[in-house]
Amino acid sequence: MTDATMTEFALPRPRAATADHPVARALLTATAMFFIALFLLLPLITVFAQALKNGVSTALAAIVEPDALSAVKMTLIAAGIAVPLNVVFGLAASWAISKFDFRGKSFLITLIDLPFSVSPVISGLVYVLLFGMMGWFGPWLREHDIKIIFAIPGIVLATMFVTFPFVARELIPLMSDQGRDEEEAATSLGASGLQTFRRVTLPNIKWGLLYGVLLCNARAMGEFGAVSVVSGHIRGQTNTMPLHIEVLYNDYQFVAAFAVASLLALLALVTLTVKTFLEWHYADEIAAVHKH
């Protein structure tokens, strides 16, 4: 989106031919805004309105309370491990898929998409089936005093599973679209694989990668269903933020629940602001990338 805006800035708009009719433009914008308002803005306002119903200080008190802080910590740990791993995976997968031709490619893509289509309930359940006491490895793990489910490793695993495809999914179409000419040119000029990747591919996919990381991170922090199955819900210990919100909601602490929820929403807005800032700061660079 940004580069389009930037191009418009950069050029004295000789592009009337590709501009939409003002009426169409107004109609489309209105439709988009209406849809966004109905499905996204109103729920968001509801969250903040409920959180601030009894004033800012009540909302703040709910956030700095020890159980809430421990939930924030759990969420950061889970996202902090799951997101980097999924980024490495996403880069490897999209490199293999977009730069090479091999049989079974679309089957592989489908497998990567799979965690999207798995119900969060099931993504938690599979780890219970594997590591639970009634599962395959449960008794052995217990004998050796290793805790996976109802402890941090289980929560991290469930988060990894749920956010698995995000980065890969963002990069595959982008890298396929860009083709492999530039990389082939670089290697024929004697660049090593790593150099080619760092100097040619990475700058090209930087912004798509950032999108992917942001999505992956947001989803990692907000995941409820899967984590709920493997967490054990021990207050102050294995509750992540979404689980803590559910606990508060069930405690009749509606205001506190929505306060923590708005913290998550804010977190998302902050990451997006960071993204926006980066795009603005490196606008020239982005434009340059897209010119050639």
């Binding site: 590591f131 006491m133 449960g138 217990r142 109802f150 021990i234 102050g236 606990v247």
Partner: peptide, 19 residues
Amino acid sequence: NMSHGGSGKQARAVIDGLD
């Protein structure tokens, strides 16, 4: 430490290894 939830779900969690 407390863990709360639906009674059946909680029983299952204990069976599955909740300590």
